[in-house]
Design a protein around this nucleic acid. Sequence first.
RNA 1: GCCGCAUUCGUCUAGAGGCCUAGGACACCGCCCUCUCAAGGCGGAGAUCACCGGUUCGAAUCCGGUAUGCGGUACCA
Length: 498
Amino acid sequence: MSTPDPTSIRVRMAPSPTGPLHIGTARTSLYNFLFARHVGGTYVLRVEDTDVARGTDEWETDIIDNLHWLGITWDEGPQSADGGDIGPYGPYRQSQRMELYAREADRLLASGDAYHCYCTPDELEAVRHEQERNHEAPRYNGRCLRLTDAERAAFEAEGRRPALRFQVPPDKIRFDDLIRGDVEFDNALLGDFVIVRGDGMPLYHFVVVVDDEAMAITHVVRGEDHLSNTPKHIALIRALGYREPRFGHIPLILNPDRSKMSKRKSQTAITAYREQGYLPEAMVNFLAFLGWSPGTEEEIFSLEELAARFEIGEVHKAGAVFDKDRLDYLNGVYIRSLADGQLAYRLRPFIPEELDDGILMRLAPLLKERLVRLGDASELAAFLTETDDQIAALYEPELLLPKGRTAAETAEALTIARGALGAIDQPDFAAGELEAICRSSAEAHGWKAGDFFRPLRVAITGRLVSPPLFGSMELLGRERTLARVDEALKRLGAEIPA
RNA sequence: GCCGCAUUCGUCUAGAGGCCUAGGACACCGCCCUCUCAAGGCGGAGAUCACCGGUUCGAAUCCGGUAUGCGGUACCA
């Protein structure tokens, strides 16, 4: 044997376009990507769209776009949903490889490893029920394995379209999982399973094996939910005379109740996180650590650093709960690390169009300093788009009152603040200037700064806590700021100065 | 039911027989800073390492069993 050539390592991800890119698929793709990059291998994207009833172009677009958004790239496969394939093993969409599957299915039929099955869904269902009643393993009973020519002809005459079943050899299947080590299954416990449907559509267990061989995949890294499917695949591989790849099964991502992460209980679409303002860097960092760790106390890594450190054998065996708090924290870390221009650019989709890029640039340092959390950022966006009427409706007069102050005193403070604001000539404010003027006015009238700013904060922002007071005033401009203060005075039943 | 995989603070994890009276991070609590909220700094609480039994001078780490959870058991992927 010569030294193994690292470039001969070929891995793949095989998403099925039956929905938007799922968190779990994204992480499996990420681990495959990191593994491929780490060993200098080739990364293949294959679209598993054999289940045409469920698959749509829309989902394929979502999957490819979001994979790109995360920074995951592949060497072979469709580079965009409407574009062509790249790579010598194409096409990379299973819906376009039907002749290959038909050919391999025929081989199995010819060699006797597969046989036609005329059982109807109802008949199969009945058998399963019967087995359950008798506490037997629910598996195919092999009825069609040895049909006489007459029986076969009778079924054909009935118009039944046979499915193709693989005859599973009763072998003990053992393999050395990249992550779990030695695993053994007994295929004698398996029933013969269908590999091609009655309507001619080949099924997952079959096509995945055919394609992995055809695309020269050497390492299959996939979710743990496929662990117990692997002995089926190995049986198929042996029957077809293929070369057996290495398998690695990564742990599942879990709902808070520790069941497999699902749409019902968690937000699973990558797109949804993207639309809420999560940065791809944060998502990647977060996902990478859900089931893997570099073994040190470092925890902030770029995609490149991850690729340099990632070892497939270090991947954990137990499932990991998706902890959104941690994602939020990481998102904050990455937002804070962004330069102002970068932040403004990333924020653009979340900020109303009326606020031009100049304002956004001024807003950027403010956001970075204080509104690093997603929740706060979207609050700010909402704040900026709220009409003054909506803001006014938000607060109750009691909220305006500092501790131990009466409505009259509070109105007085607001009137003072109003005067300070009015004293500024320019239509736009500078936060620093505003703060200085308000502070000195307050002190001149014997107010503690904290007491003074509280009613002002509620009047301007409509809430007790964030966003930052002076930044908000700066963004609103003088006119709207004064309007809000006036509205607050009205609520307090106070006179509005002319 | 059967088969398989897993099991360290609430969560993500460090840990590969003595360095562990189990370390870090998120979340939580307190203090400092501060116009607020954050961020940052300091500190606190939080895990009899699922349980039982072995091996060993010594076990979170090795072995066996039990329990619990999860996954698979489709003409879905």
